[in-house]
Amino acid sequence: MRLFYVHEQSAESPKRSLFLAGPSPRGHGEYDWRKDACAVLSHIGFGGTVYIPLPRDGMFRGNYDHAAQIEWELEHLEKAGVIAFWIPRNLKTLPGFTTNVEFGRFSRSGRAVLGYPHSATKMRYLHYIANLDGVQVYHNLEETLVAAIEKIADQNY
């Protein structure tokens, strides 16, 4: 499995790739669900590329370039074979407002999978849109990632 973090570039555009979309921690001690996601992907033997829209050390610095962050994310959302949206929404620590926009932008792409725990708040609208657009919905991180990998395999890359 190859991991690419924000601002890191890969020369190729691998179709056996997965973008881990969802709310990002902004401070010390906030839940970074992507670490769990990478552990799950490793455990189930995913051999593709994973795009992670966080700095490699997990910390955004005060002087970070917001426009460059957005450009990297949009480029890699387009490049990814599948976009796995995991939204453990907590309005105080992981609100996921940007994630809402990204989901709306890519829900009709045929490349999205949506997951969120039952405890996540304010998810009814996204779930409704997922149903309209034929996006699979799960409530467990591992099931979400397995579905994303199966979607990659179904695309016959």
Rank of each mutant, 00 (worst) to 15 (best):
V135G: 15
Q155Y: 05
H66L: 12
N63T: 14
T93Q: 06
S24Y: 03
M123N: 05
R2G: 02
S109H: 01
L41W: 15
M123C: 14
N140D: 15
S24N: 10
G29H: 06
D32H: 12
R108Y: 04
I44E: 00
W86Q: 00
N131F: 07
F19D: 04
G62L: 11
G47P: 08
Y64H: 14
E71Q: 12
F60D: 07
E78G: 11
M59C: 08
S42V: 00
A84I: 04
N63C: 03
R111V: 00
V137M: 12
M59E: 13
K15Q: 15
C38Y: 01
E30G: 01
A68T: 05
E78W: 00
F4H: 06
R108E: 09
Y116E: 03
R61V: 10
M1F: 15
K122V: 08
M123P: 04
W86P: 00
I129R: 11
G96W: 13
E78Q: 14
L77K: 03
G45H: 09
G22W: 09
V40S: 02
F85P: 01
A21K: 05
E30D: 08
W72F: 04
L126H: 04
H127D: 13
L74K: 08
T121Q: 13
Y64S: 11
L18N: 07
A39Y: 05
R108G: 05
E71N: 06
E102S: 03
S17K: 07
R108F: 02
I129L: 15
P53Q: 12
C38M: 11
G104P: 06
V135W: 13
G22V: 05
L20A: 07
A67N: 11
D133N: 15
S119H: 09
G22S: 06
W72C: 02
A68K: 14
R108C: 01
L74F: 09
F46P: 06
S24Q: 13
G96H: 09
P25N: 09
L3A: 09
S13G: 06
H118K: 12
I152P: 00
T98F: 01
A21S: 13
F46C: 06
I129C: 07
L54E: 15
T99I: 05
R105W: 11
E71L: 10
L126T: 00
T93V: 02
Y157M: 01
A37L: 05
F97C: 01
P95C: 10
I44R: 01
A153T: 09
A21V: 01
D65V: 08
V113P: 03
G45M: 03
F60A: 10
G48A: 10
L77N: 03
G27Y: 03
G48E: 15
A21N: 02
Q136T: 14
S10A: 15
E30R: 01
A80R: 05
G47E: 13
L141T: 09
D65S: 10
E12Q: 15
I83G: 01
H118S: 14
E150V: 01
R26T: 11
G115L: 08
G81R: 03
E12R: 14
H127R: 12
